[in-house]
Design a protein around this nucleic acid. Structure first.
Lengths: 214, 214
DNA sequence: CATAAAACCACCCGTTTGGGGGGGTGACAA
DNA sequence: TTGTCACCCCCCCAAACGGGTGGTTTTATG
């Protein structure tokens, strides 16, 4: 008997899922919430094996909710069921701790199969999602070993920036004008596609990690 | 009609695969090699849609072979079919450009389904492999459960700060006021003995080594 | 139950940053 | 020559940030 929780703000969809699960032998729906706040309150009590999680929720996003749930219940298996299929959302969800990702257009049988699959140690994904995930590995090398085409000066500056130095300090260390440092930073931000020093530092810090990370 | 190439050093396995494909309507085997060198010579000529690749090959490894094949034919879809299921091998293969990964114990129908799936933009994987891949995402970002004496909120905020988010974004994500986020940051800075967000991010990013300390 | 600690929100003020201009030099290739 | 590129410097402006002060509510804990 697999116990399941549902987090889905659309009442119709939620009830359909609930019915689907209750009508299937071996499955039981122990909790159905319409927002992340309720989920964080009720799911730890219900202690389900698997959570079906929508991403578009009022207030607290499904991603945030997933992350916090995994903190509270590290063993719970979260399957995202959503309409969003853009790469960023998918990766954020997986990083938050989801171990499955289905699109809402999936057939009911696919959802049931996914629940069984996570229980057996799998990671059910719609095929497009799986492809995105695999491609993330292939595009990992570029940002990894190859610090993107930064100038020598640019690299020196970024390095110190990532160590927490302010522009003024960097300027002093390199015997430059603050404006020059700022000018270089503008170039760097453009190349890294970021808009702030902390984002740039974040890019820098995870340059050289083998697995994924877009 | 999907054209397929096979790279597999074991003659028995290779012939089984070849027979399986030839006997299935809509599938055609245009090339069957027993080593990577032959594969790199013959496959570019045969121009198959999909390649079934073993990893254990004499001389040139299946991973190397995959990487070079993808250089020659960027559009070819490579499915690994092997007995190796260790994490490192899986990641290397995916990084080399494979878009599917099956274990040899897979049923013949699973292999045919996988071929169809890659042609439709999917990434067929054995469920254990899929789980490994997804877990790689999860183990990437949380590399710092080593805590300083920060409050729960403080830790959440610092974590997001270190990921490059601005105060405003952090406030939105956590459903807080910007002023609250700023207030928490003040506390955090004091505890970490830093005076800027980048310094704080720097502290956070190298967390995990508690050598001395009272 | 009381008290402390944490979390939350608000306002002010001066500085730093990001982003937009504008200049100028030297090196190296087309 | 002309072009491109890395590098350096300067100015302006709005937004974001760091730091200080003052509160209220929620939560934990004795």
């Amino acid at each position: 008997m697999i116990s399941i929780a549902i987090v889905e703000d659309n009442a119709g969809v939620r009830q359909n899922l609930q019915r689907l699960i209750e009508e299937t032998p071996g499955f039981r729906c122990v909790c159905a919430c319409d927002c992340g706040e309720d989920a964080l309150r009720e799911i730890p009590r219900a202690r389900p094996d698997v959570v079906l999680m929508d991403l578009h929720l009022p207030n607290l996003s499904g991603i945030e909710c997933t992350a916090r749930l995994k903190e509270l219940l590290p063993d719970v298996q979260v399957i995202i069921v959503t309409v969003y299929d853009d790469t960023e959302t998918v990766f954020k969800a997986l990083r938050a701790g989801a171990c499955g990702y289905l699109l809402k257009r999936s057939a009911p049988e696919r959802i049931l199969a996914a629940i069984t699959e996570v229980r057996e140690g799998g990671a059910p994904m719609t095929s497009e999602i799986a492809r995105k995930v695999v491609e993330a590995f292939q595009s990992a090398p570029p940002p990894g070993p190859a610090d993107l085409n930064l100038t020598r000066r640019g690299h020196e500056i970024l390095q110190r920036l990532a160590q927490g130095f302010a522009n003024k300090e960097i300027a002093t260390h390199l015997s430059l004008s603050v404006d020059t440092v700022r000018w270089h930073l503008k170039q760097i931000y453009e190349k890294l596609h970021v808009r702030s020093r902390t984002e740039a530092a974040h890019m820098f810090h995870r340059a050289g990690s083998p697995p994924p990370g877009p």
